[in-house]
């Protein structure tokens, strides 16, 4: 007769085998992760929109109150934006133009709230001096020298995310880069996404020989003409616009809005369909 411990060992193994619960499915795990990230992203967007509305409403109320009272103009409406150097939109493009772009016209009264990075210009085939395909180490060294250490990194990869076997997203405020490769030690730059509007962003980015994120949509339309398609974004949150920019056959996705003046607040160029998630 087996002693109690042997009996437990044998019977628990047999019971587990007999019940045969189904082990989890890898695709289902990835799908749940994607769903959770999507929910978090939507929640963050809604919160950001709500915050923007509150700030805008406060600014409008403050301006209105001042005008009603003594008809003076306040220099700095109360907002959450930290003090930064203001750069006029007319200074954003100094290098030579390509065949498909023109220098954006100046629109007075719409200064950017933060400086424009002149080293990390956004290109259809890379960012700053780095082309897509550049080794991660090389790119990271250059970007960290410009922007400082990233605030977060997210790793993943594999066919379930439509990525190469290894992938990583590295995020700074206002910019994230995607790297992919056959293994974590051989990652290469495959995409960038830049944004404007975060109150903590130290700078904004501009297109090579083109306008900067944070400049009004008409500036971008003047620069790119029919190459830039602007459409209302379907569904909530309302007020946003979708941008599709065709640069010599390469498509970039962007967004604008919702506040007046409607400024371009995001532009993305990914060379793969990798869906690693947000960071």
């Amino acid at each position: 007769m087996l002693d109690l411990e042997d009996r437990l060992t044998a019977d628990l193994a047999t019971a587990a085998q007999a019940a045969d619960p189904h082990p989890p499915n890898r695709q289902a795990v990835a799908a749940t992760v994607a769903r959770r990230r999507h929910r978090r992203r939507v929640r963050a967007t809604v919160l950001a929109v709500a915050a923007s509305v509150i700030v805008a409403a406060g600014a409008v109320a403050a301006l209105g109150a001042v005008r009603d009272d003594d008809h003076t103009v306040i220099e700095q409406p109360t907002t959450t934006v930290p003090p930064t150097t203001e750069v006029p939109v007319t200074t954003s493009s100094t290098s030579s133009t390509t065949s498909s772009t023109t220098t954006p016209p100046a629109i007075s009264g719409n200064p950017l709230r933060v400086p424009v990075s002149e080293n990390l210009v956004l290109r259809a085939d890379g960012i700053g001096p780095f082309d897509f395909g550049a080794p991660q180490d090389e790119v990271m060294a250059g970007i960290v020298a410009e922007l400082g250490e990233p605030r977060s990194r997210y790793q993943g990869g594999g066919p379930s995310q439509n990525c190469e076997p290894a992938a990583e997203e590295v995020a700074w405020i206002g910019l994230f880069l995607r790297f992919e490769g056959p293994d974590p030690g051989s990652l290469r730059l495959t995409g960038w996404s830049a944004g404007y509007g975060n109150a903590q962003a130290p700078r904004t980015f501009r297109m090579q020989d083109g306008p900067a994120l944070g400049e009004p949509v008409p500036v971008w339309q003047a620069a790119y003409g029919s190459a830039l398609l602007v459409e209302p974004s379907p569904g909530p949150p309302v007020g946003y616009q979708s941008l599709t920019l065709n640069l010599d056959g390469v498509t970039l996705d962007g967004s604008a809005g919702p506040d007046e003046p409607v400024v371009v607040n995001g532009m993305t160029r990914m060379t793969t369909n990798c869906s690693l998630g947000d960071v």
Binding site: P21, P24, V29, T32, V33, G156
Partner: peptide
């Protein structure tokens, strides 16, 4: 099955 699925999701997110 549910607990194990959730555990792998949690590990994946914090990998």
């Amino acid at each position: 099955e549910e607990v194990t699925h959730d555990a792998f999701v949690t590990v994946y997110e914090r990998w």
